[in-house]
């Protein structure tokens, strides 16, 4: 069975095999280019994020998929849900803007809090950081899809499973001729 799986590959000539490799490359590239294209369109470095915690319940639950935009001309306002990064933490946080100070020259500093948390986020920020600024913002939530992100969460909780699935798909594409 396994042997017959690779029969196709063994029979391929050099060019056919190169095409198989390039097809796999193009599938990965297409996904990558769609992602990068979304980045350009939304202006956010990560236009789609998954909510990982329950800190924004009942607005967002663990596993919700969020679509973000980050247009520089749109001002941040109190009450908006922003996704921001904190130095020293890899994972961006989705929380609501609680207080905001805007200067005449357009610079802003703001404080955030999770709807479901009892205290504001100062404890989460980097040591000594009291406010967030525009450069910390990854994007603002524009829409969401419930539950879809659970797949990503499970995949990240079981990295071996994720790599196994990806490897199987890659091998399938590689050995299967259209």
């Amino acid at each position: 069975m396994l042997e017959s799986l690779f029969d196709d590959v063994r029979r391929m000539n050099k060019r056919q095999f190169m095409y198989q490799v390039l097809s796999l490359g193009m599938i990965v590239s297409s996904a990558l280019m769609i992602w990068k294209g979304l980045m350009v369109v939304t202006g956010s470095e990560s236009p789609i994020v998954v909510v990982l915690s329950g800190s924004m319940e009942p607005a967002f639950h663990r596993g919700d998929l969020l679509f973000l935009t980050n247009y520089p001309e749109e001002p941040v306002r109190v009450g908006e849900i922003v996704v921001f990064k904190v130095e020293g933490r890899d994972i961006p946080i989705v929380h609501r803007v609680l207080k905001l100070h805007e200067k005449n020259n357009g610079t802003v500093k703001f404080l955030t809090k999770g709807d479901n948390n009892s205290v504001d986020d100062r404890g989460l920020y980097a040591q000594g950081q009291l406010w967030l600024t525009k450069k910390d913002v990854v994007g603002r939530a524009r829409g969401f899809l419930p539950y879809v992100g659970m797949v990503t969460i499970y995949m990240n909780e079981y990295p071996k499973f994720k790599f196994a699935v990806l490897a199987c798909l890659a091998i399938y594409v590689l050995v299967h001729r259209e």
Partner: peptide
Amino acid sequence: LFLCALAVGVALYALLWDYLYPFPQSRLVL
């Protein structure tokens, strides 16, 4: 094969450029 390789090359270039010059800077290249 040339067209495919070129497309994959463009994607790899975008990936590399975005890695070297993180997003807002790499916008035009992207």
